[in-house]
Simulated assay, not measured.
Amino acid sequence: MTFTSNERRAQRRQQCREALANHIYQRLGLVVPPGRVRLQPSAEDGYAWSSSKAKEYLLKTNLGRGTVGLYQDIMDELGQSLEAVTPKTLHANKVGEDAPSTRESPEIDSESFTATIQRLEQQNKELIGKIGELQRSEQERRAKLRHLEEELERHKSYLEKSEAELLRARGGITEALVVLQKWQSGGETV
């Protein structure tokens, strides 16, 4: 039996809708009849689609107007660079809020790539903050070290001057002792 292009398109569209409905159920635990699945759902539908930047074009067309190639691309990318998420998760991703810390539904087996990206972006922000703190702390330590080194140089200079002064005083004392010993031993007058 040979299919016309319209029949082949209708068959692939139905397969795509079924794959999308199954994915929504697996990811979010929502039962959406295949005929009611949309690529541009409203918040009331209870699901949204998240995709990588490179695959955003897959969500631009209405499912009823797609091509056989589009339906195949959607099915190929489903769970890879295209996934069902809660509207809250998608909204948090778009406005840059923190990712939800708990999963929306107990049926979700693993963290979505959208939630993973959000979690990693948040961790990245935290690490950048910690790096900044460490850099400031390092700068403070270096400033203290420079101050201590300068103080050490001042003390070294003072010590060198004191030693020179001590040597000169010692020389004067030695001369005085020699004169004193001569004076005591025999009466040479100075």
Rank of each mutant, 00 (worst) to 15 (best):
R8I: 08
E140P: 01
F113C: 05
S185H: 12
R65Q: 01
A92Y: 02
N6I: 15
R141F: 06
Q181R: 15
W183M: 07
L90M: 11
L20Y: 05
G29N: 01
E165V: 01
S52W: 08
A84M: 04
R168A: 11
E165S: 14
I131H: 06
L90H: 08
H23P: 10
A143H: 02
I128Y: 02
V32D: 03
M75L: 11
V85N: 07
K94M: 03
A19I: 00
L145C: 09
Q123R: 14
S110P: 01
G129K: 11
Y25I: 03
E138F: 06
D45H: 13
T174W: 00
M1E: 04
D109L: 09
S81Q: 12
V68S: 08
Q139L: 11
G46I: 06
N93V: 11
R38P: 03
L177G: 00
Q72Y: 04
L177Q: 09
R38N: 03
F113E: 06
V31R: 13
G35S: 03
L166G: 02
V179R: 14
I117E: 06
T86P: 07
A21W: 08
I117K: 13
A10S: 03
E160R: 14
D109G: 11
N124S: 12
S81K: 07
C16E: 10
N6F: 11
L70G: 00
